[in-house]
Design a protein around this nucleic acid. Structure first.
Lengths: 251, 251
DNA sequence: GTGAAAGCGGTTAATTTCAATCAAAAACAT
DNA sequence: ATGTTTTTGATTGAAATTAACCGCTTTCAC
């Protein structure tokens, strides 16, 4: 039994049942407790499951319980640096897409210097803030997702397809050399993908915690977009620069 | 039975029934009283439920947030009465449109009793509140108007035209026997008109201060929709009842 | 009121699960 | 074949989880 085989087995079982017991896995996979423990620990560092006493569970439910406000507390400083750098890339006359999410929210406050821009967004909070700042704002229509306050669904994607953007700024949950850019919700991934395809210059905004993580739904490959980050360690910087452009925001 | 499994079970049951009894859980989960007690205590510290004598209940953070938002609004009491009456007109399986504006906002808090409804809205605040209450919500896309946080424009109208509503609930600024329903912004009037045309039963929500007023842009004639109001005086009631149905909300 | 029943929090001891360590086994490169 | 790295399985004491028990408070019927 190969390591990767066990990992697949565990993830598949998790996807079906939502929860797995360590002892069950020991029986079903015919290996020792230690091995399963190691597997679970590894898969947790990759962000693919959540370990619990006696086994592991899918983190989709956990993801839901975190509200936007709780999330926005994390890595605020890095996100502000990223936001500042991202906003500096926007020039006059630009038509840009800004994704829902906490990281992209940070860039909006730095936008007003750019007098004449048009912004399309699928985030409620983004839209509110943008109009408050007097920026010409279009909100994409469609179904509203409760947890992230993002507009998703076929209608949203159809609308995005009818626009052309100079740049788009997307949030992302996981960045991995093998699996590319990933996010937990397939519908959100589809929206991001649509925006990306309509953009001349697509950017992903991601603080250091997003690297070496994999989520359920893939948006695109690493070389399809530029990464804007901050607080990244030396190892990850050199590793990911081989695959795509990595812009690092500093003080 | 793993800890996390029990927690999920408890929270799900709570979400459905609103209240759980400790002894019920002991039977259903096959574990001791102490264990359930510990679970409930833990979940309470996490802010996921409220312990009560004999079990636990769901907590409504949403209602508390409501009271904060309501402060800067005029004629709150009348608007609440109107909102309650309007919500009572919504039945299971309905697909309804709710307009942007403060009056329509009041009706949303009374909606959750209606289990299975779908709501389309052009108001940012409406959309946020609706999803918080767990109602299936679609936001119309288009340009976002700064002052009222309403979505307007050709794209919004085109989207509304692609839906069919059982009912629509619209706010309005002026009601007059001669000029009908009017509002200051022609673009908002156009959105209201579009929603009205797609609805089997259109309603206008208006407190007493809106009668005998005329604004710039006309939405439709008096007999095109039903009026839901409160605090109206005797003279206006008899006058407007000649033209259309007037529902009056009382204590 | 009064007593019985139900519910409460805290303590305890037994059991299960955990992380860390180490040595054997397997895979790999030279 | 030899040495090196990776993977695995067994063992350990520590930590977490559990059911059962205790004395106390609340609730309810009479």
């Amino acid at each position: 039994m190969l390591t990767a085989e066990r990992h697949d087995y565990i993830l598949n079982k998790l996807r079906e049942t939502g929860i797995v017991r360590l002892q069950e896995l020991v029986n079903e996979l015919n290996c020792s407790e230690s091995t399963i423990r190691r597997d679970l620990t590894y898969l947790e560092t990759k962000g693919l499951l959540k370990r619990i006493h006696g086994g592991a569970k899918r983190l989709y439910t956990v993801e839901e319980e975190l509200t936007i406000k709780q999330k926005s507390v994390k890595n605020v400083h890095e996100k502000q640096l990223i936001g500042k750098l991202a906003a500096s890339l926007v020039t006059d006359q630009d038509v840009i897409f800004i994704d829902a999410g906490t990281t992209t929210l940070e860039m909006i406050q730095y936008l007003p210097m750019k007098k004449d821009i048009t912004v399309v967004t699928n985030g409620i909070h983004q839209a509110t803030l943008l109009t408050d700042l007097g920026i010409r704002t279009y909100l994409v229509g469609g179904r509203l997702k409760n947890t992230t306050k993002a507009i998703i669904g076929a209608s949203a994607i159809a609308q995005i397809r009818s626009y052309q953007f100079n740049k788009c700024f997307l949030g992302i949950n996981g960045i991995d050399t093998e699996f590319g850019f990933t996010t937990p919700d397939p519908e959100e991934a589809a929206v991001k993908h649509a925006a990306l395809r309509q953009s001349a210059h697509p950017f992903f905004l991601a603080d250091y915690s997003k690297f070496e993580k994999v989520n359920f739904a893939k948006v695109c490959d690493l070389d399809d977009a530029t990464i804007i980050t901050a607080g990244i360690n030396e190892k990850n910087r050199s590793r990911y620069q081989k695959f795509t452009t990595v812009l690092e925001a500093k003080e």
